[in-house]
Every structure is written in C-alpha cells, then in structure tokens.
Design a protein around this nucleic acid. Structure first.
Lengths: 157, 157
DNA sequence: TTGAACGTTTGAAAATTTCCAAACGCTAAC
DNA sequence: GTTAGCGTTTGGAAATTTTCAAACGTTCAA
C-alpha cells in the first residue's frame, strides 16, 4: 500500500494525461484532478504550490475551466483569496460541452447539404452528397443518444 | 452560387478546423475532408498537390488514419501508386475510436476505486472516494449509451 | 545492373502552444 | 493616502508540434 501523497501525485498525473488524450492541456487535467482528489475548495496559491507551476497559467486555465462550467469559485468568508472547487456534476457538465461540439459537426453537415441541394449533381458531387447525408444522419442520431444518456444520468438516484 | 473549386476548398478548410476543435492536427482533418469530398481513391501525390503540403506529413498522417481505421488503401491495377479512400462507415469507425478513449477513462476510475477500497477512509479520502465512484458510474452509463447508439447506427436502413 | 517511380524516414526549420517572471490593477486594511 | 495581499495580464522564453526538403529503401521496368 502506498501513502497518501503518492496516491495523490499518481492520480493527478493520470488525470492530466487523460486530458492530453483529449487534446487538452495537461495542466488543465492536473488542476481538475487535484480538485477532484481534495474534494474541497482550494486557493490559487495552494494549487500553484501543489502542482509546481506559477500563478499565470493556473489563473488562465481556471478561467477557461470556469467558462466551461467545470470549476466554480467558492466564497470563503473572512478570506480575500479566491477558492475553486470542482463544479457539481462535473462529468455531466463536461459532457454537455461535448454535445455542443457535436452540434457544430451537425451544423457543418447541414451547411453543405444546403449548399449542394441546388447544384447540378454530376458524378463528382454525387459521392460528396452521399457522404454529407451520411454525416448528417450520423450526428443527428448521435446527438439524440447523447441527450438520452444525459437525461438518464441526471435522473439517477 | 459558388463554383466547384471554391466549395471544395471551403469544405476542406471547415473539416480541418473541425478536427482541430477535437485536438487533432488540422492536416488530418483536411485529408479526411478531401477524401470525403472526392469520394473516390486518391493518390498520395494528388493529395499532396491538392492540399499544398509535402509528401512527408501526408505519408505520416495517412498512416495514422489507417491505424485508426478511418482511411484505407485501395489497389488500382496497373498503377504502382498507393491510393487512399475514406473507410466505409468512417463516422462509425471514428466513434469506435472515441469509445475506446472513454473506456480508458472508465479504467482510470476503476483503478483508483480499487486502490482506495482497502484504505482507511478518513475525511480527506472520503470526498475523493465519492468523486471516483461518481466518475465510474458516469463512464459506465456513458459507454452503455454509446454502444446503444452504435448498434442503432449499424442497423439503420 | 542500372535507372526511374514510388512511399517512408529523418534532421532541422518554422510555427504554435505552454509556461514563467514580472508588471499591473484592484481591493481592503491601516 | 499608503501599503500589503490578491488575481490578472503580458512579453518573451522554453518546449512541443507541425512541416519541409532531402536522403533512403524498395520495387519494377528496361
């Protein structure tokens, strides 16, 4: 059995790498990982020293996380510092963000579907048309299922 | 109404940016976009000149795309060149890749669930335990819905 | 055996992203 | 007002990613 601090470091690192696999900054994942591990509001200074990074990046990334509703500020009475904690239902919130990405893919398909609707369909565009219709159908169905999932998730005990 | 070449360029650009939003190389998206637009096997040289990039990156990225089953080689008799085309059901294939990413998240939750199972649950780890259990439940349910979607997608007319 | 036509690999250049240190602005306490 | 304690912004440094040009290996034709 490993000790507390090792466990924390390992989790933070794993979580950071997980974020990287999604094309997001590793530091973003490490911050979220730290917040999930501690499970209580943390000051910017604490995060800074815990992750061995300077204030600048932490400030910028916590803002980005707040913009995406994954992290929120917590007022601590009698303390001028800002405290941050993981948003309630952070996984659901992250998923909502993903849905909007999918919606922009659907919108892309829709855009080109409309563009070629009026065009003369010679052989060249015929294949493109099929692919775009496929894409549209795919994302439409996908978003439907995403919403199903979200609904079930939010209605769990 | 815009002409054929403009439409192609715009689609390729949009598709490339779409890939970027997912944290993937823009060129990867532009290659996939070109393949979807043309809807027929294209040679490496053709892709190269069409996208204005040199052979190196195109060679590397088509390999990556083949590794992920999004693109496949097509044999053209009497021609020594390699031809590439979008894989059948490319959207479904891409989605399968995403499922395996989600599975690694589930595995992460599972890993830490097991690590802390035997540990003494003082107040510190209590919050972490809740978060990890939440994470596990979330990805478990998510993967179930993802598979539902894939099943419905594959069984569509 | 040579040469030509390919795709791949590789080392370095270019571009982008990440990160830091320091300056800055704001607020609260004195 | 001044000062101290914050978070944010910013210019540039560091690191990473992307891209290119060229060398390389392979295959096929002559």
């Amino acid at each position: 059995m490993q000790d507390f601090s090792e466990l924390k470091q390992e989790f933070i690192q794993d979580y950071g790498e997980g974020y990287q696999h999604f094309g997001l900054p590793q530091l973003m994942g490490r911050i979220v990982g730290l917040l999930l591990f501690e499970g209580k509001p943390l000051s910017l200074d604490y995060i800074t020293q815990e992750l061995n990074v300077s204030k600048g990046p932490v400030s910028q990334i916590t803002r980005r996380l707040r913009d995406h509703n994954l992290v929120q500020r917590k007022w601590v009475p009698g303390d001028r510092k800002d405290y941050y904690e993981a948003a309630p239902d952070i996984f659901g919130k992250a998923f909502v963000n993903r849905i909007s990405l999918m919606k922009s893919n659907l919108a892309l398909a829709q855009k080109y579907q409309e563009k070629i609707k009026d065009l003369n369909l010679d052989d060249e565009l015929a294949n493109f048309k099929i692919n775009i219709e496929d894409m549209y159908a795919f994302y439409e169905m996908m978003i439907k299922h995403y919403n199903n999932f979200l609904e079930e998730w939010h209605s769990r005990k």
